[in-house]
Computed example of a mutant assay.
Amino acid sequence: MDRRELAAFLRGRRERITPAEVGLPAGPRRRTPGLRREEVAQLAFISAEYYTRLEQARAPRPSREVLAGLARALRLSDAERAHLHHLAGAPPGPAPGPPREVRQSILDLLHRLPQAAAIVVSAAYEVIAWNELAAALMEDFSAQPRRDRNLVRRAFLGPHPQGRRLYGVTDAEAFARNAAEGLRATAARYPDDPEVAALVRELTAGSEKFARLWASHEVSAETTLRKTFQHPLVGPVTVNCDVLDIADRDQRVVIYTAEPGSPSEEALRLLSVLGTQRMDVPG
């Protein structure tokens, strides 16, 4: 354990985070850049006294639970999390669950694709990032609670707004089967993640179809290369589906594009103008 380097690293990470980033008020008498020590301790669920001793290079080696709390409180990247563990003399083990933090370069990529609908999906099939055209084509994900942004849950348990299962895609059945198989592989990679385990229990209890697929132990999920969305405003939109794997985050970027010059390309162009506004609501 390198106490001095650990103390300096914690202090540097603490000072770069603004209170607003973690939902705390700045307050009129704040004299330190970033967070206060007691605020980090509160976010990490450890005592303020112990955290202070860590920053003063006087504390004993922190446990893995404490390190996990500090990584969460300080919003560390994967590389920073690994560095924190090495400084503490406790090399990191595998990530406890599917990573949900999306690299800034990937977020920038989504917004540089104005003619394509693009989303980022975690290993647990949660939509964790999207661009404006994806929101217009599928739904306004920002208006949905996190649980309803999980595509495998949506496939088997709903909700199905306007009677459209999975945004009216033509391959809903194939996607559901592939998602069940993919989720089994995810559960094997993250056996200790409570969220993945709870999702599997919920799906098994709530869907006989999922329960049958789960019992088959299949893991050979396939990728659909083309599908059609039945959109309530612009009608059918047929798109090509390209998937880019982000191996270090266990995430996927899914990009939907229409054939140049096709009616679907015109529909996407119209959706880019309409955005997520609801045309069925009287003005």
Rank of each mutant, 00 (worst) to 15 (best):
P232H: 15
T238M: 02
S220M: 10
P236F: 13
E222R: 14
S220V: 12
E218Y: 03
T223P: 08
R226P: 00
K227I: 08
G235S: 06
P232W: 15
L244Q: 14
T228L: 07
F229Q: 01
N240F: 09
N240T: 09
K227H: 12
T228F: 11
D242P: 00
L233R: 09
K227R: 13
S216K: 08
D242T: 15
K227M: 05
L225C: 04
H217M: 09
F229N: 01
T228S: 04
V234S: 04
R226I: 14
T228C: 08
T223L: 15
V237N: 01
E222C: 05
T238F: 03
A221C: 02
P232A: 13
T224S: 12
R226G: 05
T238E: 04
V219I: 10
E218R: 04
G235V: 07
T224Q: 13
E218I: 02
V237L: 05
K227L: 06
V239N: 06
S216Y: 07
Q230D: 03
C241H: 03
V239R: 02
G235L: 01
R226Y: 13
L225A: 11
L233C: 06
V239W: 11
T228K: 06
F229C: 00
T228V: 14
E218H: 02
P232V: 11
A215N: 00
N240I: 01
L233Y: 15
T238S: 06
V243N: 06
T224F: 13
F229T: 02
T223A: 13
V234D: 01
L244M: 15
E222P: 03
K227E: 09
V243Q: 02
H231C: 07
S220W: 13
H217L: 11
A215H: 03
Q230C: 00
F229I: 03
P232N: 07
T224P: 00
T238N: 02
V234H: 10
V237C: 02
S216Q: 10
